[in-house]
Write a protein that binds this DNA or RNA. Structure first.
Lengths: 115, 115
DNA sequence: CGAATACTGAACCATATGGTTCAGTATATT
DNA sequence: AATATACTGAACCATATGGTTCAGTATTCG
């Protein structure tokens, strides 16, 4: 039950904590790909890959679209038809997601400089 | 070309996927703190907090030192570089696509304005 | 010394995760 | 129409995760 209450940051970092999923993201950066092809490429059952895609999709990192039999996966982007809201949303989402990380990095840099 | 250690990326992203642990990192950014105090602050048993600290330590995000009875936790030094690099790489890919899409949006906007 | 404090480790528990297989549905292809 | 393809969903499995309690050990304080 309960997956819905999981926070976005949790989801994103958890999605990124698996090397298969990171590999899928980088692959999708090169080329939109079907689940079957991803499964082959990462030496895994179709069902297994579908689960990974589900996790990436849940985290908003990947979007999929089914045409005929084939579900094509691509990097998650914002809505194509919402114009300028793109930039805002893009920045907002990434800021949100990596806010914590950036703060930590800032702290580390400051510490190093003040040492 | 940056070399990423798969296991370390796994560990670090997994460590960051828990909001308690992210909170601990932010707290340690403010002030070095004992495990007991962290446990109180995050409303958790001492043993539970100790586990979190172990995970953060394993990922190299936190360092600890025991003096007398008290184990003091502090931020680990400069461990997030490769994680940032990975994210940057992903963002780079995203940006490339974003730029391409943005051009289309610009065109659409211009069309509408000129209509 | 004796008691309180701070941690450590083992055992336990419920749920999540990363994978599988198997059986099914929907869509091409021949 | 028959078969192959691509996905979907359920069930299962082993291990990991996030937490707990309980029983210690070591250190400090009165």
């Amino acid at each position: 039950m309960v997956q819905y209450s999981k926070r976005r940051l949790d989801q994103t970092f958890a999605a990124l904590s698996d090397s298969t999923r990171r590999g899928v993201l980088l692959q999708l950066g090169q080329k939109d790909t079907s689940i079957t092809k991803l499964a082959e490429q990462f030496h895994m059952s179709l069902t297994g890959m579908k689960k990974h895609i589900g996790i990436l999709e849940q985290a908003g990192l990947v979007k999929t679209e089914k045409k005929g039999r084939v579900r094509t996966c691509k990097l998650g982007t914002c809505q194509l038809d919402s114009e300028m809201a793109w930039i805002e949303k893009y920045k907002e989402i990434w800021d949100q997601r990596f806010d914590a990380l950036e703060i930590i990095v800032q702290e580390l840099k400051q510490r190093r400089e003040n040492k």
